[in-house]
């Protein structure tokens, strides 16, 4: 298992390097925006990953709530997955927002605007920051349960935010992958490599955090057991 992790991480790092090369040197310079458009090769993959990990978090949280009475060992595993994916969400969505801000100034002339996608991602980030804070300021099974409940609240909240801001105002370019925008084939290649690289890197991070969290759980359980026996 451990050697598989190192292999996975090595491949992810190599892909990140190759993706950087593709995005910086191989992909053609965009006609209207110029070199600044290259941020897109990091911005979009980061946000794609940041959209997947909250689902992992929510599914693991629901699994925790369902299992916590019947199978505590499985529930603890689910909670470790939930926390690991929440941390990766905060990291990736945070970087995605930052890269968007850096791109916004030259492309839109403003650093930030409250449009549907930017607001939804900002809120996703804030919700998961408060998720991590709740976990930080509570302990034991209590922390796991209230964090799981909060994760469900966040999962319900994000689509509502997206829809309501969309009715309010929208400035973000329409989705380039599924919408009407089109990209040169070489841009697709750079995009694809970077998306694969960041996805693998996110899995590597979650994997490492999961292993650490499981050890912490086991240590805490052993300590509790020792305290009871003493």
């Amino acid at each position: 298992m451990k050697s598989l992790f190192y292999l996975w991480t090595a491949v992810a790092l190599a892909l990140l390097g190759y993706g950087f090369y593709q995005g910086m040197y191989v992909a053609p310079t965009e006609a209207t925006m110029g070199p600044v458009q290259r941020i897109f090769y990091w911005h979009v993959p980061l946000n794609i990953v940041g959209e997947i990990t909250p689902y992992v978090n929510m599914i693991a949280s629901i699994a925790f709530l369902a299992l916590r009475r019947k199978n505590i060992a499985a529930a603890l595993k689910a909670d470790a997955i939930a926390l690991a994916s929440a941390e990766v969400t905060v990291l990736f969505v945070g970087l995605g927002l930052l890269s968007g801000i850096l791109w916004g100034k030259p492309a839109w002339g403003i650093w930030w605007t409250f449009d549907a996608r930017t607001t939804t991602f900002l809120l996703l980030w804030l919700l998961y920051v408060s998720y991590l804070l709740v976990r930080r300021y509570s302990s034991g099974m209590q922390a796991y349960t209230i964090a799981a409940v909060l994760s469900i609240f966040a999962g319900v909240d994000v689509p509502i935010v997206f829809m309501s801001i969309r009715w309010w105002r929208t400035q973000h370019p329409s989705p380039v992958l599924t919408g009407e925008g089109s990209m040169a084939p070489a841009m697709w290649v750079a995009m694809g490599w970077n998306a694969a690289a960041w996805l693998m890197w996110a899995v590597a991070l979650m994997w490492a955090r999961y292993a650490i969290l499981r050890r912490e759980q086991k240590r805490n359980q052993a300590e509790a057991l020792r305290a009871m026996e003493a």
Binding site: L123, L127, S130, V134, L150, F153, D157, I160, V161, I165
Partner: peptide
Amino acid sequence: MVLFPVAIPALLA
């Protein structure tokens, strides 16, 4: 910390 982010769509509405 937890109420404000969750309440944002309602607040906007």
